[in-house]
Amino acid sequence: MATSEPTATEAVQHTVGREVIVEVKALQKYFGRNHVLKGVDLQVRKGEVIVLIGPSGSGKSTFLRCLNFLEDPTTGEIEIGGVHVVCGSHGGTFKKDVHQIRMKCGMVFQEFNLFPHKDATENVTEGPILVKGEKKDEAIEKAHALLTKVGLADRMDFFPSQLSGGQKQRVAIARAMAMDPVLMLFDEPTSALDPELIGEVLKVMKDLAAQGMTMIVVSHEMGFSRDVADRVVYMDDGYFVEEGPPSEVFYHPKDDRTRRFLRHILPEKEPEHAKELGITEVDQELPSPDDAPAQGSVGAAFSEDNLADTAIPEIPLSDGAAGFTPMPPGDENL
């Protein structure tokens, strides 16, 4: 693993020079008098995977939800996939732009939010049919392809109540992908899952990243971040405190707050030893990176060879250890 893993600089390097898909400038958000986002800037290039970490209430989720206007940002500018919106305005143009941005963003929620009265296929086809006006047969065909990709070929006509948490979340990912988004937003996608189900969802996300999907992920899955993220952003009190390649931010944090926070997340050792610890643990638990195709090779992740891996429960998730992340109890809400 150590040899095939791109170094920190490589991880950032491989997207340098690509077009900028997301441009956020001076984003601020108030909830009443509560100042949640205090001026946040972010630039994401095509194919980049950004992982947001930070303590509870630091504004990670709010930031993510502001990107597709589930929360209306107070001021700032957001440009996604060429659609530029000045926040805090209103009116017809604003609404139209927000709609455009929502169509370009796929979002995956912590609580899945599948439509309980529709089966897996209908959940996926809802957007394409209603919003994009796709023909029903075509939409269903596409939905079946997507559900097969996320390893749910045998669950297509199941209702959400008949699916496990991990399966629900994979349907949710397929639902978001059905809109052909340029950017995927993941809001703590694995926090509501039982430990043994986390792996199957992370696997799908990894495949997506490998396929070249641009992603912004709020997550404390350290293994995932270390393997997939191009940049990790530490957020605290409404600011981006520190950002950089995962190896930098996790194991050589510059800011005191980052260090304090990581002490909670990483095993209770000195930060100097954390790297060593983290890697040995993750090595046991993650599927070997050799299984995953090289980053950026679009479609390879979902090629025939990899389907067997995606089908649950064949994935070699772990040796029985509880999940990927050495997260201490009590920090689930981070």
Binding site: N68, L70, H99, G106, M107, F109, N113, K132, A172, A178
Partner: peptide, 17 residues
Amino acid sequence: PKGQNEAAWAIGLSGWQ
């Protein structure tokens, strides 16, 4: 649940849809 609204908005459904 409010999440149902949000999920619908997130895939681009209008308010009435």
